[in-house]
């Protein structure tokens, strides 16, 4: 890894070692990272910002779990752009240059509620600690998790451990209900199953679909927004979203908001703000990796 151009040795300025790394499904990786300062304050619904190396960008990742005794946090990251792919090439023992947080307003957890959480794709990682927080205070927790197919579903066991009931949907029907997580929620709502609060975390289309679905039923619905972000302290305004016609900064006012009030169209547009640049960045990186591979093959 350290041979790849533009990926210098960590200079040990701020060191956050990867203790464990697992390759899950669909380019999703699980990282257990040493970050004792963050563990002390971590709460469900919060996120961290990380940076891999000196020239790297800052990216926000929701906390999936943390371990007070070991001083570690657990992150699930899908390798889709330059930074996340680069991260997927790191291994246990390598260190991230920066991990900072926890950021954001923690999830509001109130006793005496039936809590239904929907997680799509690696969004399941983000609902995990929130479901657990509800479970811990004695709320009934139902988790609806989904993926395109059975092999791509992550965290089933972890979710079972923190939920009273886990319901599964796959697009192709290879596991659980055929369809989307909304298919399951829809039938629950139609059957008038008791639901006090719904939380949805996943791609914007999914969070919008859930919010549209619950609105006529008047069920409180929370979504965790993932706009482009930089500092995480409310200083730059890159992560601004519109909720109930009001400008909010997802990093300090969120990331959780009332799904019925969110301008999802704007969020979708703003997520594409740097798409052309991200493409360029990835192409250059892939070319470097290819050259590197060819060189290594030639050396054999």
């Amino acid at each position: 890894m350290n041979n790849v151009k533009g990926f210098p040795h960590n200079q040990g300025v701020h060191v956050f070692p990867i203790i464990e790394k697992n390759d899950l499904a669909a380019k999703v990786y699980r990282y257990i990272i040493k970050a004792p300062n963050i563990v002390k304050k971590a709460k469900a619904g919060q996120f961290v910002i990380l940076r891999l190396y000196e020239d790297g960008e800052r990216i926000p990742i929701t906390l999936a779990d943390w371990d007070e005794a070991r001083g570690t946090i657990t992150l699930y990251v899908q390798a889709v752009g330059k930074t996340t792919i680069m991260m997927s090439m790191m291994k246990a023992g390598d260190s991230l240059m920066d991990v900072v947080g926890p950021f954001g307003v923690p999830s509001h957890v109130e006793k005496g509620k039936t809590f239904v959480a929907l997680g799509g794709g690696f969004g399941i990682a983000a609902i995990h600690p929130i479901v657990r927080a509800h479970r811990v205070i004695g709320n009934r927790t139902i988790s609806i998790i989904g993926a395109r197919s059975k092999e791509l579903l992550i965290m089933e066991n972890e979710m079972r451990a923190v939920s009273d009931d886990v319901r599964i949907a796959t697009d192709d029907g290879s596991y659980g209900t055929k369809g989307f997580v909304t298919t399951i929620l829809k039938s629950m709502l139609e059957k008038n199953e008791p639901i006090d609060v719904v939380l949805a975390i996943g791609p914007v289309v999914m969070m919008k679909a859930v919010s549209d679905l619950t609105k006529p039923y008047g069920v409180q619905t929370l979504v965790s927004l993932n706009p482009i972000m930089m500092d995480g302290t409310g200083m730059c305004g890159a992560c601004r979203v519109v909720v109930g016609n009001k400008m909010q900064f997802a990093c300090v006012d969120g990331p959780e908001f009332n799904g019925h009030d969110v301008d999802f169209e704007l969020l979708t547009a703003r997520q594409k703000m740097y798409s052309p640049q991200e493409k360029i960045s990835l192409e250059i990186f892939e070319k470097i990796c290819q050259t590197q591979e060819q060189r290594e093959t030639a050396a054999w």
């Binding site: 533009g6 020239d55 960008e57 800052r58 930074t83 930089m230 640049q277 991200e278 360029i280 960045s281």
Partner: peptide
């Protein structure tokens, strides 16, 4: 974030 060096020596887009 040294964006003026994007994309070759900085990953943060401008």
């Amino acid at each position: 974030m040294k964006g003026f060096e994007f994309p070759n020596h900085a990953d943060t887009p401008v």
